[in-house]
């Protein structure tokens, strides 16, 4: 298990000017993410968790501080196709079949037709959507569309997976199922995952590290290394250890809230 640092942020800041004055979306955020970790970012609206993820993905530019991904700038990492991004909505192109949607990044990145076909097959198997390759997005449920979106992010073997509240729009039963699947996937592929969520149980269930953030200005209030074992059946959520960690998260959130 390599302990190399994959994402490193030092005093990262992002301030933007609005009509009502400066907004500190991120202020002096420092964090190291090691290879193979599953890191959750949790906090109330405006705490900067999505902004932080987007800065890692080179979708936003920081105004201060430093951040490297795989040892290079986020922009260089993006050019090297170092990560896959999963948005809150599946964002599948309705004019392409599921298979076609997964092929999208592969076409752009120049994989051969044969390679594309193989990768599509493998990755659909990973998310258990093999029978739906020829179907169109609107023929699938919300949960299935999100699984397809995850498959799309995995198709080109990026080492890093960045996920912005991917299950937020789904009902709890589907969400539980997808959480389980995601964990299984992570164990199979050993990717480094950055995961933004609103849900405390979800954060504690999925992660090896939980980053608690709070708003105004956006900052980290606590970083919790999870002591939960690698094997996590769903009922681990009733265990004492789980509840203790969740409690710590809650306290971190409250501390950020009270400090406002």
């Amino acid at each position: 298990m390599a302990q190399e640092i994959v994402i490193s942020a030092k005093d990262l800041s992002l301030t933007f000017a609005t009509g009502d004055g400066a907004v500190h979306a991120l202020k002096n955020v420092s964090l190291d993410v090691k290879k193979g970790e599953f890191v959750s970012f949790i906090g109330p609206s405006g705490c900067g968790k999505t902004t932080f993820l987007r800065v890692m993905a080179d979708l936003e530019q920081p105004t201060g501080g430093n951040i490297t991904v795989n040892g290079v700038s986020p922009s260089a990492a993006r050019q090297a196709r170092a990560y896959g991004y999963v948005f809150q909505a599946a964002g599948l192109y309705p004019w392409r079949s599921i298979g076609g949607n997964i092929r999208l990044p592969l076409e752009i990145m120049g994989f051969s037709k044969a390679e594309q076909a193989e990768r599509v097959k493998n990755v659909l198997e990973l998310v258990e959507l093999s029978d739906f390759e020829k179907k169109f997005p609107w023929q699938l449920s919300g949960g299935m569309q999100q699984r397809a979106s995850i498959a799309r992010a995995l198709a080109f073997d990026a080492d890093i997976l960045l996920m912005d509240e991917p299950f937020g729009a789904l009902d709890e039963i589907v969400r539980d199922h997808l959480n389980e699947q995601l964990l299984k996937l992570w164990k199979r592929t050993h990717k480094t995952i950055g995961f933004v969520t609103h849900s405390i149980p979800e954060a504690v269930y999925l992660s090896t590290k939980i980053v608690v953030m709070s708003p105004r200005p956006g900052r980290i209030t606590d970083v919790i290394e999870s002591s939960l074992p690698e094997e996590r059946p769903l009922n681990i959520r009733d265990s004492e250890e789980f509840i203790a960690i969740a409690q710590r998260v809650r306290e971190g959130l409250r501390a950020g809230h009270d400090a406002e």
Partner: peptide, 20 residues
């Protein structure tokens, strides 16, 4: 969001035009 997705693929403007 769709444009951001293309951005994460480091797609060239022509690719983004034709495919999205």
């Amino acid at each position: 969001m769709q444009r951001d997705l293309m951005h994460t693929y480091a797609a060239r403007p022509a690719q983004s035009f034709l495919k999205l």
